[in-house]
Design a protein around this nucleic acid. Structure first.
Length: 214
DNA sequence: TAGATCTCAGGAACCGTGGC
DNA sequence: GCCACGGTTCCTGAGATCTA
């Protein structure tokens, strides 16, 4: 997958130059580049064609498989207290964490952009609630506007562009380096929409001329 | 262990706003 | 006034958890 990046508080400089981050950052880049259009199509057609209209669960699944294969811990709790640690869902959890880096994969609604940005900060800052994890830098993986369209994502999802818009007003709150990664639209296909009864489903549409992709 | 219940993410529907 | 777009709220289904 191609992607674009936005660096908050010198995150990219730190990832590329600080020895403690270089290996993990190389793994993140490798994982993102390794996932091809064909892998996405295959995973979508195999698991989600009859269930989902967008690529959100497909890309989530592929990322989870790849990150765990590189020994990134999945769904790491931020806090140790049972009240926060044992709560169901991912409310107080990071999607992935390794060494000093926390990662959030964010294809959910734009209303939770601020929360997705804050979670890596909570994982990195001191807190009066006992911590389960201590990172120093956060990475947010989200969809660009082009990916939102090509992947048939819901109109309400938070995109790369919206995440960047949030950074300036939240600058004082987002006190740790954050790297926003926006996944670009697939080059060779897009997800069209078909109706099966009352249910909307996606349908892989190969692009004859990838240069004309969204 | 199986059925009931709960939780939550994804998607649909609705509404407001801005551009033409 | 119409249309497109974005934001908010509600609904639904799948998976997790509970309980008998």
């Amino acid at each position: 997958m191609d992607y674009r990046i936005h660096s908050h508080r010198n995150a990219l400089t730190i990832l590329e130059n600080e020895p403690e981050f270089q290996e993990a950052w190389a793994e993140v880049q490798h994982i993102l580049r390794k996932i091809t259009d064909d892998m996405i199509i295959d995973c979508y057609n195999t698991h989600y064609q009859q269930k989902n209209k967008s690529l959100s669960t497909t890309i989530n699944r592929l990322l989870k498989e790849e990150f765990t294969s590189f020994s990134w811990s999945g769904e790491s709790p931020i806090f140790q207290e049972a009240k926060y640690k044992d709560v169901k869902g991912d409310y107080w959890r990071l999607d992935f964490a390794k060494d000093d880096i926390s990662i959030e994969v964010a294809f959910n609604h734009s209303t939770v952009i601020a929360w997705n940005l804050l979670k890596p900060v909570l994982a990195s800052e001191l807190n009066h609630v006992q911590k389960a994890i201590q990172t120093k830098l956060g990475i947010i993986i989200c969809a660009t506007q082009e990916m939102k369209v090509a992947g048939n994502f819901d109109g309400a999802i938070g995109t790369y562009e919206k995440f960047i818009d949030h950074l300036r007003p939240l600058r004082n709150q987002l006190s740790v380096p954050l790297l926003i990664i926006g996944l670009d639209a697939p080059k060779t296909f897009m997800l069209g929409e078909i109706k099966q009864g009352n249910k909307k489903l996606g349908s892989v549409v190969k692009l004859d001329n990838p240069e004309l992709s969204v």
